[in-house]
Amino acid sequence: MKYLLAIYGDEKAQENIPPDQQEEFMAGWFKFDEELRSSVNVLAGDGLQPTGTATTVRFKDGGTVTSDGPFAETKEQLGGYYLIDVDNLDDAIKAAGMMPNLPFGGSVEVRPVQVFEQ
């Protein structure tokens, strides 16, 4: 089954991590990425630029409206994702549980990918 692991965290708190710890934090991600790809089938995975760089597109009065900022202002922001293919939810939860942002108060939302029967 395919699952999207949506990685959430508090951007502001992450920006405030001192540089030396920042490096350590990133090293944690690289190590995790390597481990994950060697243990499960990773279809895609990326980190995202902060929500300050986000642009939202909506439809209004018959035309598209483009505006600055994320879809919604929330306490935690989407910061990255993995798309994995594993046997069941437990395997997806296990992969999510290894994410290095969790000890820093982040969270991972595990969502099954919708399958359309042909």
């Binding site: 089954m1 699952y3 046997d87 069941n88 939810l89 437990d90 997806a92 595990v110 099954p112």
Partner: peptide
Amino acid sequence: RVAGIPYRVPPDDL
């Protein structure tokens, strides 16, 4: 069904 919760006795680590 949709989220793929397995029908099994969990492995030892869980």
